[in-house]
């Protein structure tokens, strides 16, 4: 049967003891890798071995391991989220590698996502962006019947396309400029496309862009690397919509 043969790989991984410590690449040999293993399971095995030897395991983040929670995020051999298209690194499997491969594993290296330890970074800047306006201001209990506000099906689908974002940060990590436009664009788009989000769309665009600039994300230069790596295939059309929302909001705001 296919895929039974086990093999060995060398993992070169970024080790950094703390936010202010210097980091370096360290090589580890991992034997007995099954092609059916996921990439993160291979790291689990490596970690258990390190632990048994009394070494400190490699810190990396992952939770659901089915590509939806957005916890995981590694640069594998220079590929953000690994070589598979539009997927998270937790969905990468070892059958993509062969015996003797040297695999380089790095964290997101973004100024606005500082490293906490090894491969773990702090993405709380994304939460602050949402707090700046990524919501609809309706209190619990105040909503009208859900069917009293019809939403054009195509618009609802487009909103859903944008809402598929899992907040993993791959867009920023892959952007040559470290911009967060795809993340912000996705949220602004989702809420601008729905009639429920229309009353505060102008303020939302202004506030979220202001927060984005404050957090120290770069400027978008329309290179579209973000779209190419996004595990949920969120499109740069959302960035255009963010630009449009922002420019119109500026043009027509009375302030």
């Amino acid at each position: 049967m296919k895929g039974l043969k086990h093999f060995s790989v060398t993992v070169r991984v970024w080790r950094q003891a703390g936010p202010k410590e210097p980091g370096k690449m360290v090589s580890y040999k991992v034997k007995d890798v099954s092609p059916d293993m996921s990439f993160l399971e291979m790291l689990d095995v490596l970690n258990d071995n390190l632990l048994k030897k009394g070494d400190t395991p490699i810190a990396f983040e992952s939770d659901c391991r089915e590509g939806i929670c957005g916890c995981c995020g590694l640069v594998v051999n220079g590929d953000v989220h690994g070589p598979d298209e539009h997927s998270t690194v937790c969905q990468l499997h070892m059958r993509r590698f062969s015996d003797g491969d040297v695999i380089t594993v790095e964290p997101w290296r973004v100024k606005s996502f500082p490293v906490i330890k090894d491969l773990v970074v702090d993405r709380s800047s994304f939460d602050r962006l949402i707090a700046a306006g990524g919501f609809i201001s309706v209190n619990t209990g105040a909503a009208p019947d859900a069917n009293s506000v019809p939403v054009e099906k195509d618009k609802a689908e487009e909103a859903m396309d944008a809402a598929a974002c899992i907040g993993c940060g791959a867009c920023v990590a892959s952007c040559p400029n470290g911009a967060a436009m795809l993340f912000v664009g996705a949220k602004v788009s989702q809420l601008a496309l729905l009639p429920q989000g229309t009353p505060e769309r102008a303020n939302r665009a202004l506030n979220m862009v202001a927060a984005m600039d404050k957090e120290g994300f770069g400027n978008c230069t329309n290179e579209y690397e973000c779209e190419a790596v996004c595990p949920k295939d969120v499109k740069v059309a959302n960035i255009a919509r963010l630009n449009r929302e922002f420019l119109l909001a500026n043009l027509f705001s009375k302030k």
């Binding site: 859900a146 609802a156 989702q190 989000g197």
Partner: peptide, 11 residues
């Protein structure tokens, strides 16, 4: 409530 806070339900 969820429709009002922007959950993009299928339509």
């Amino acid at each position: 409530h969820c429709a009002a806070i922007g959950v993009p339900f299928a339509r």
